[in-house]
Write a protein that binds this DNA or RNA. Structure first.
Lengths: 341, 341
DNA sequence: TCCTAAAGTGGGAGCGCTCCCGGATTGTTG
DNA sequence: CAACAATCCGGGAGCGCTCCCACTTTAGGA
């Protein structure tokens, strides 16, 4: 009895309809043992007939699990908008979480004002855990997040502020090394770099990988660096400046694909042929950029889906109370060779 | 007493700490009336001291509100990845909802397999309502959604299947008309169009706007259409074909900015100057495409943020039990004139 | 001054679910 | 066939909150 009039059916209703108790109905629906096939059958049929779907609030009130994971994207200058990388990440995260029965909840953090609200939300038990991307080293978010009671896994390198957080990063240093070694193998000896924003830890890693490799090979690096701010325009002006300073350069390592696009423009404007006169290598191997440039871009390849998967694996460990194998996981990168180098 | 040991504090704990009852604490925290300033002060201080944040599950169990709204993106062929438009929409929706104290929950629907899970989730009381984008007319999602008990607002035109749903669309027909009229004002008379995928209702509207305007002006349209599939490459090949068929064309209306980019490439390859020989108008006025092309693109401007805001307004009406003014809201568009036409 | 209405407060019920525990039923073994 | 374990089932408690209702205190008018 006590069937709620027009509202959605409750577990009680399903149980009554199936002629069993609430407990048995719950057990049947949650696929637990100690339920007779007959009872289970009846409950499932009842649920189907009544169009029952469990009230998640009631459920998580007692289980203390929400089945939702937050994906937090912190990018102070709204650059996320331009970067197809994040869309790939979002989609991969969604798929990966959906396959594990979790819902993805996306949160953007644009300004400092968003931080308290975000913190409050994450701490309010809305989600079981969070995956966080905050590529800027000056970002106050990582520090704030460490105070939270919710498991958090970081994507990329959160800078010094993120020490103590679980992270999954790419091997940016090795990626840069592959790029430079490839240029060396192509016979290039005057290899400049268009680096990313200096406040990006990832950019710093790529820069140091470039520098190390050249130094190890006894080649010069002085004055061979120009920052391109991770944008196409930035890459173009950086390249233009480098051409003035090092007119006989023969190789370029651009720390991102959009910057590489700018580099190619600048080289073309300067009458340099790629790859005949100058070889160019990018970073990201962005599927909507690298293969579509003229000439198609040789680029350091990373797999966002893999990164997200590793992050989720760590989060799952954290959620089940286990201690993940490592605090910081570094994923390998490879080099996708096309015609630009 | 009964202070939970290591767990997060409950409202009961806050009340005890502040020396008031649970009811008073609740009233103080929820900014209701009938609370003395003294009591309110004490409760707020207690909450601060204890680091209290309310358990949302318990809250929504009784209020029947979750404070979350789903943003559903259905795009069978994963095109969303390439379209910066959706990122703009996502961001606008996030901001708009955040300002109203709601959380945004993003869900992707790639394949038919995702539909049951999505439906179940939406119907499970996880969210108060949903904003849905499903631009393909063949998409089975809109039909399915109509069975749900959750308020839904559609963005764009969901095709015939979406009849009966609340929608907020742009005036695609008028947009196309503005574009063509602008070309006419520039003295163009042989105006072709690179249209979008024929299974997009929006693309169909833009196409018919183009056709109507030309017909009204006694100008030909026969053989002046080529589909570009909403991508840059598609736009390029479509333009190439149009140039073969109509060598003396002098105006192009591209039904999206990426396609316009392809159009410009094809025109350049054919030795046509823009806008001297051929004028080109795009659609979307995408801030990361239209102004950055060479030459900068004249494009039909629409405001995703406004669309999202209208959708949320309707959803809010629906949530508060009011009947929205109109079932289908059509937003005006304008023309942003740059150098390409 | 008393009476009444408003302001302020606390207790209890209950949202819909899971989980614990005790009782009933069935199966297995000496 | 008794004894005991495994299986199955139902009732009760309780998760943390909001809301209703009854109660006490204060303010304000006659």
């Amino acid at each position: 009895m006590a069937t709620s009039q027009s509202d959605r059916p409750t577990l009680e209703d399903v149980a009554a309809y199936a002629g069993v108790s609430r407990s048995t109905a719950s057990r049947a629906l949650n696929e637990e043992s100690y339920v007779s096939p007959k009872a289970r059958e009846a409950v499932l049929a009842a649920a189907r007939d009544l169009g029952y779907s469990p009230n998640q609030a009631a459920r998580s009130l007692v289980t203390k699990r929400t089945g939702a994971v937050a994906l937090v994207l912190s990018e102070p200058e709204s650059k996320v908008l331009d970067d197809p990388y994040f869309l790939t990440v979002m989609r991969a995260a969604f798929r990966e979480l959906a396959n594990r029965g979790s819902q993805m909840l996306v949160m953007f953090v644009d300004t400092r004002d968003d931080i308290p609200r975000t913190m409050k939300f994450l701490d309010g038990g809305h989600v079981d855990g969070a995956l966080v991307f905050a590529p800027h080293s000056g970002d106050p978010l990582p520090t704030a997040l460490k105070l939270l009671r919710v498991p958090i896994v970081f994507g990329g390198r959160p800078g010094n502020a993120g020490r103590g957080l679980y992270t999954v990063d790419y091997d940016n240093v090795a990626g840069a090394r592959y790029a430079v070694e490839h240029l060396l193998a192509r016979g290039r000896r005057k290899i400049v770099t268009v680096s990313g924003s200096p406040d990006h830890p990832a950019a710093a890693d790529r820069l140091s990988g470039w520098q190390q490799t050249l130094t190890d090979n006894g080649l010069p690096t002085e004055g061979f660096v120009e920052s391109g701010d991770f944008t196409q325009n930035g890459g173009e002006t950086a390249m233009t400046r480098l051409l003035e300073r090092v007119p006989d350069l023969d190789g370029v390592f651009a720390a991102s694909d959009p910057m590489a696009a700018g580099v190619l423009q600048a080289l073309r404007a300067a009458g340099k042929r790629v790859p005949e006169d100058v070889s160019v290598v990018g970073f990201d191997d962005n599927p909507s950029i690298a293969p579509t440039l003229t000439p198609p871009l040789t680029s350091v390849h990373q797999e966002p889906a893999e990164q997200v998967r590793e992050m989720i694996l760590i989060l799952l460990d954290l959620l089940s109370g286990e201690t993940p194998a490592a605090q910081r996981k570094v994923l390998p990168v490879s080099l996708t060779v096309r015609s630009s180098a």
